[in-house]
């Protein structure tokens, strides 16, 4: 049986761990609220954008010289995966879930004979995927040391993607990120960015609005050329925000569990400690009594 001093030491160390995890939980909770409201604030823009793109895209989709961002390059040989994760760990299975999702996706694509390239956003995804797919890494982006990720950051990624597409470095681009469903549920999901997935026009007519014929100023092609990169940026922005909200939610959960586990452990250790102490006292007493009796 462990001696008392050792037990005391362990109890103290678990207690300080509990303090840390509790503090991290509080911090995550505060950050979560901010991240969540930021994600919610970005939603209307993304929705309106999708609506506008739906009405615009249909008019151009059949056109052979429609922009590449909308219809792709016409081939689907080279796939680029943009994997969005957190920069920090200690968030339960948050990062590994996305990583695993990405890995399965890559395996599937490679089994089908496609070439895969990976662009990671967030440090954790990079370290996870580099282990296995080092040769396929096309780049990594992190927001480490940044207090708040703004639209400009997403825009920079979108510009990079557009540049790569123009240079013919990939044909299909898919975004993999943790969708924020609730504080306790983040779902790793993928979304195709290029060629753009057009939302169904049926949704528009179903909402009671007649399909309108639009006039364009200056003209359709110019507007589309501006709208598509913006749509790309907004999709990425949304994914980053959702992932950020999910990260804090996951961390809050993980830290809550850790705090609870530490509490259980402290109880167990305290019980052992008290028992050992009692046993020691009893033993000493017996020794004294049997010593006295022997006289």
């Amino acid at each position: 049986m462990a001696n008392l001093k050792e037990l005391r030491g362990r109890i103290n160390s678990v207690k300080s761990t509990r303090k840390i995890t509790q503090a991290m939980k509080m911090v995550a909770a505060a950050k979560l609220r901010r991240a969540q409201s930021q994600a919610e604030a970005a939603r209307p823009y993304a929705e309106r954008m999708a609506r506008m793109l739906a009405s615009l895209g249909q008019a151009v989709a059949g056109n052979p010289d429609a922009p590449k961002l909308l219809v792709g390059t016409g081939s689907d040989q080279v796939h680029l995966l943009v994997v969005v994760t957190a920069d920090r760990g200690l968030a339960g299975p948050f990062n590994t879930n996305v990583g695993r999702h990405a890995r399965n996706h890559i395996r599937k694509l490679e089994a089908a004979g496609k070439t895969v390239k990976i662009l990671t956003v967030g440090r954790k995804g990079a370290t996870y995927l580099k282990r296995e797919f080092a040769s396929r890494m096309a780049g990594e982006i992190t927001f480490q040391g940044k207090k708040r990720v703004g639209f400009e950051d997403a825009n920079a990624i979108a510009e990079r993607l557009t540049g790569m597409l123009e240079a013919g470095e990939f044909d299909v681009c898919t975004l993999i990120y943790n969708r924020f469903r609730s504080v306790i549920a983040q779902i790793p999901s993928d979304q195709q960015l290029i060629p753009a997935e057009l939302p169904e026009a049926a949704a528009e007519t179903a909402s009671g609005e007649a399909q309108a014929w639009y006039e364009y100023e200056p003209d359709e092609a110019t507007i589309l050329a501006q709208l598509l990169p913006k749509n790309l940026a907004i999709q990425i922005y949304r994914a980053i925000l959702e992932s950020a909200a999910g990260e804090h939610g996951a961390r809050m959960n993980a830290m809550d569990n850790a705090t609870r586990n530490a509490g259980d452990m402290i109880n167990k250790l305290t019980l052992t400690y008290n028992r050992t102490r009692q046993a020691n006292i009893t033993r000493e007493l017996i020794e004294i009594i049997s010593g006295a009796e022997a006289l």
């Binding site: 930021q38 604030a41 970005a42 209307p44 823009y45 703004g150």
Partner: peptide, 9 residues
């Protein structure tokens, strides 16, 4: 009239 920016409505 709806006015939205990427950051908010």
């Amino acid at each position: 009239l709806e006015l939205v920016s990427p950051e908010k409505l």
